[in-house]
Simulated scan of single mutants.
Amino acid sequence: MAIKTRNYSVDGKRVMTVEEFTRWLKRFDEDNDGRISKDELADAIRVSGGWFANRKSKQGIQSVDANGNGFIDDSEIKNLLQFAEQHLNVWVLFL
């Protein structure tokens, strides 16, 4: 279990609530369509220091895109939490 200190856990991950994560992720919505595309998710992975961003973003979209439209909609963001902990250097708190 990670210990929270100044918004970062001891393993270096940024600690966020679900709401904070949602707001952070929406910063990458470059075209302001309310959805996260594969390229926008790849940008989030790169900013977080992740490697192989294009491949990981494709996997992320495929794993959480419930309606199959190729985007992460507001209703699907919560499905992305496990992916975020693995690939976005984020530890999401459920409060």
Rank of each mutant, 00 (worst) to 15 (best):
I72C: 02
F94S: 14
D31L: 03
G68F: 03
S75G: 15
E19Q: 07
G49S: 00
M1H: 11
A2N: 12
E19G: 07
V47H: 12
V18F: 08
M1L: 13
V47S: 14
E40S: 04
S9R: 13
F21Y: 07
L88Y: 00
L41S: 02
L95M: 10
V64L: 07
D73I: 06
D43P: 05
K58P: 00
D11G: 02
Q62L: 09
E19V: 14
D65F: 01
F83C: 03
A2W: 07
E20F: 02
R14F: 12
Q59P: 01
R55G: 01
S75V: 13
D73Q: 11
K26Y: 11
R35F: 06
T5C: 15
K26V: 08
V64F: 04
N69K: 07
W91K: 12
K78H: 11
S48G: 11
W91F: 14
I45H: 00
V15M: 00
V18M: 09
I61K: 00
E85C: 05
T22C: 12
R46P: 01
I36M: 06
W51E: 15
L95Q: 09
V90M: 11
R35E: 14
S63G: 08
I61W: 03
M1K: 13
Q62A: 13
H87V: 01
F52I: 13
Q59G: 08
S75E: 11
V47D: 12
S57K: 00
N32V: 15
V92Q: 05
R14I: 10
S48D: 06
L95D: 14
S63T: 14
A2R: 12
W24C: 04
E40A: 01
E30L: 14
